[in-house]
Design a protein around this nucleic acid. Structure first.
Lengths: 300, 300
DNA sequence: TGTTTGCATTTAATTATTTAAAACATAAAT
DNA sequence: ATTTATGTTTTAAATAATTAAATGCAAACA
């Protein structure tokens, strides 16, 4: 009942790898030097050295440390299979919410989620605390959490916020210098949109990827940590919904391609007002789609 | 080493208060009924009933529960003095960061913070996880957290983001219907600005409060959970900085009053473009002030 | 004098334990 | 028969205990 010693195990193996680069009889650097090499504290290094000494891989007296023999494969320390991941917990969580269409006001059990996602409860709580800042989940007075998201109000507010951010991004693009990489990206996007438009009858499901690329390109101009953090969540939510809402997909995508092209036209003409207007039009369509996809879920 | 039994203690006292409303010999409602009254689960109620029975306040056999005597003051259960607070941890934390001018990249010790703020470590971790979504703090690979905030880049990005949100808010105000409460608030604000302008020589430090009210009024029109969450943090940060930066306070505040009045003029004239322009001008000033206050700190 | 080590203290991650809640089953009452 | 209450079991959440790791400081060494 304590923290894991993964850090020690990893450091030990890393140290072993370092020893392999040394000739036998070589003196081993100072503890603090080794700590730097392995990226851990001296405490961990000392534990590693103790083990190395125990296996008679090194001699260790005072500050005199020497390599006695070349390390072998069986000297390595076993590592409990790495925990799946933790970085993309966000992606997997939203995926789960949207895929299983988890309704609003569902109580979220940390214990259960921690099992399904194979992540320590601890990490999950931290993650939920973060999401609560986005108004996606909330603490319950009797303890635990509930999922708030994906009501109609939520979708409306999210869409509106997205519009605010994206109109700002578009404005920034029109102000970007001619040698900014975004312009060549946009040229490429125009070509790809035309190509897909010509093949829309068969390849209409390819649009999802193109759409993501389009919005990412526009937003790439905005260098802002706050906006970037939000965009991640927003684009995830919108894209999942589009993926799952298959009604009139072909028609919808064809229309979206035209809307994108209008934005591209305005951008290349450096016409701020036209670009803003076109963006607002496009996002209004997006909002309608998102809302109608929610209605579908509600009814069936 | 377990969760606290605060819930039980509170429920018990609440139940006692309820018993005081009953005459002696009265039958006591069902467990589930009592659970509703006290706002806890049946499990807690049963614990309470056990104690009541132990103190011979009630008789309890099967579903036959009767009040044996009127509760007295000494029947109440002691309550470990309530933990200070937890809701305004955010306010107190930012206050601490800004007041002590904690530099960027300072490691934050959960243990230490939990002592200074008298809040369980647990709550603090949750809080920090939330802040990490705003890019104010970050997890360190070797464990723990560091404060990222209040570098120059941070201030610039925060200011820019604020501008985006506030220009949007101003736009929304111009579109608000005539009977919207914001209009009377604005009328009042105009009067208060003029009053302070006349007394600026003596009362210039009163501006801070007025400024907060002004921006709150503008933003109150925007009904959006995402934006609201951010505004809380943003206004806190800006206001603290202004409070601490005393250089040329009088001149700065006088100028800000005029800038506010320009925004008010444009709003009441329902001139979207003028309002946006005036807001952008005002926020550019704010940004400069914030940046220069940071420079002061860096040098001294 | 500057670096390295030994030791002690502090902090953080994680688990174990307790309290609380929910779920389920049975019995009593209408 | 159906509702309602209680008894019992299962499950979860909050928190303290526990160990790993980090940090700080003084002594030892070169």
């Amino acid at each position: 009942m304590a923290r894991s010693d993964t850090r020690y195990r990893e450091a030990y193996n890393r140290l072993l790898a370092y020893c392999e680069t040394l000739p036998v009889e070589a003196t081993i650097p100072s503890e603090s030097r080794l700590a730097e090499i392995a990226g851990v504290s001296r405490t961990v290094i000392r534990r590693c050295l103790s083990r190395l000494e125990g296996l008679e891989l090194i001699s260790w007296e005072g500050r005199e440390k020497r390599l006695l023999r070349a390390p072998r494969a069986e000297d390595r320390i076993a590592q409990p299979d790495a925990s799946p991941d933790r970085s993309d917990l966000e992606q997997r969580f939203l995926d789960w919410v949207l895929r299983f269409d988890v309704p609003a006001n569902t109580p979220l059990s940390v214990a259960e989620l921690s099992r399904t996602f194979e992540v320590p409860q601890h990490d999950l709580k931290e993650f939920l605390a973060g999401l609560s800042r986005f108004g996606l989940v909330q603490r319950r007075p009797q303890g635990g959490w509930i999922l708030l998201g994906f009501t109609k109000d939520f979708a409306i507010e999210l869409s509106d916020f997205r519009s605010v951010l994206e109109v700002n991004a578009v404005t920034q693009v029109t102000e970007a210098p001619v040698d900014h990489p975004v312009w060549s990206d946009i040229r490429q996007l125009r070509a790809d949109h035309h190509a897909l438009k010509d093949a829309i009858d068969t390849d209409f499901h390819e649009f999802s990827k193109l759409d993501e690329r389009f919005h990412q390109t526009i937003n790439s101009v905005v260098r802002n940590r706050f906006i970037a953090e939000f965009q991640k969540v927003i684009s995830l939510i919108f894209h999942y919904h589009y993926m799952w809402d298959k009604t009139e997909e072909k028609i919808r995508n064809a229309a979206a391609i035209d809307e994108h092209l209008q934005i591209i036209d305005a951008l290349e003409a450096r016409d701020v007002e036209a670009a803003r207007a076109a963006t607002q039009r496009h996002l209004r369509t997006s909002k309608t789609t998102l809302l109608s996809s929610l209605r579908h879920h509600d009814l069936g």
